[in-house]
Design a binder for these strands. Structure first.
Length: 305
DNA sequence: AAAATTTGACCGCA
DNA sequence: TGCGGTCAAATTTT
């Protein structure tokens, strides 16, 4: 118990350091952003809604590079209505902040951000979209690293933690009428697969430009900028997987696929992860066989029986 | 009462 | 100009 307390205290100090660093960077940036009178936060005075002006300034100035935030997609398949909640629960708590009909998509896209954004400034967001072709499949687009304290506790999240998925499931509509995709037979097929596999998760790391980013978004989550700590590289952070991927994967999950592009798989795969059944997977073996642009499904059906 | 969701409006970008 | 992402007031849920 005492050790846990210590760990938490250390974590807390880390968070505070992080917050301090973040604030400093924000200040520095604000100062340089508003140096010209025609620019920056003076726009607040131009009669537009103030809050919006501020946030816009923030997003266009300070977080201009947010596009290069780490971004990855996981596709989660679930087999029953009740399983949806559990399987989509990735261990973090999210707050829905929007929903949008997407052109050509049957189902609307849900926009979520970390519940602790306001309190802890956690920038993690995700987009959840039900697949057109296979309604049992959800594509979840993660963006940004969790810097909130829940990130360090997420592993302990109870499997029964509930996440509501309000994606307008009753609204079966298509925004445009360009394509008529033959779906019915396919759906039957996939559902058969679903029944046999239970559920499925696919993780796809998509955007890793941030490696070369001179003003990386990660600086917000890394308290040791400019220090001699060589472990500062995000790829070698021990909690990489923990922070960037769903820390909790439903026991019903049967398959994990990693897609890679220009991405150092080695470092990620070899990164120790303290989560889920995937601890059981022989990562070294995985590594030995790993090849870029190749997909290696790991069937863990046995683990879930 | 507080927290979470819904939903139409707004905004930037291509 | 239309689309995707975000905001925030209104509404619902806890």
């Amino acid at each position: 118990m005492e050790e846990n307390m210590k760990c938490e205290q250390v974590g807390l100090i880390g968070e505070l350091m992080q917050g301090k660093e973040l604030t400093k960077q924000l200040c520095d940036h604000l100062i340089s952003s508003s140096s010209s009178s025609n620019d920056g936060f003076l726009m607040v005075l131009d009669g537009r809604p103030k809050v919006r002006s501020w946030t816009q300034r923030l997003s266009t100035k300070c977080f201009k590079k947010r596009k290069t935030m780490p971004k990855w997609t996981s596709q989660v398949r679930v087999c029953s209505g009740t399983a949806i909640e559990g399987s989509l629960d990735d261990g973090y708590s999210w707050r829905k902040y929007g929903q949008k009909d997407i052109l050509g998509a049957k189902f609307p896209r849900g926009y979520y951000r970390c519940t602790h954004r306001n309190v802890q400034g956690c920038q993690a967001t995700k987009q959840v979209q039900k697949s057109d072709k296979d309604p049992t499949m959800y594509e979840i687009n993660y963006r940004g690293k969790h810097t909130c304290t829940q990130a360090s506790h997420a592993n302990k999240a109870s499997p029964s933690t509930k996440v509501k998925v309000g994606l307008g499931e009753n609204k079966h509509h298509i925004l445009t009428h360009q394509k008529n995709q033959p779906q019915q037979e396919k759906t039957e097929q996939t559902q058969e697969r679903v029944l046999s596999f239970g559920s499925e998760l696919e993780l796809k790391i998509e955007d890793l430009d941030y490696k070369e980013d001179t003003f990386p978004s990660f600086c917000f989550s890394s308290p040791s900028i400019g220090s001699e700590q060589e472990d500062n590289n995000i790829f070698s952070e021990n909690n990489f997987i923990e922070s960037f991927s769903p820390p909790y994967i439903s026991p019903a999950t049967s398959e994990l696929v990693l897609h890679t592009s220009d991405f150092d798989v080695t470092e990620i795969i070899s990164t120790p992860t303290s989560v889920t059944n995937y601890e059981m997977i022989d990562l070294d073996l995985f590594l030995d066989n790993m090849d870029f642009d190749t997909v290696f499904p790991i069937n863990t059906t046995e683990l879930c029986s």
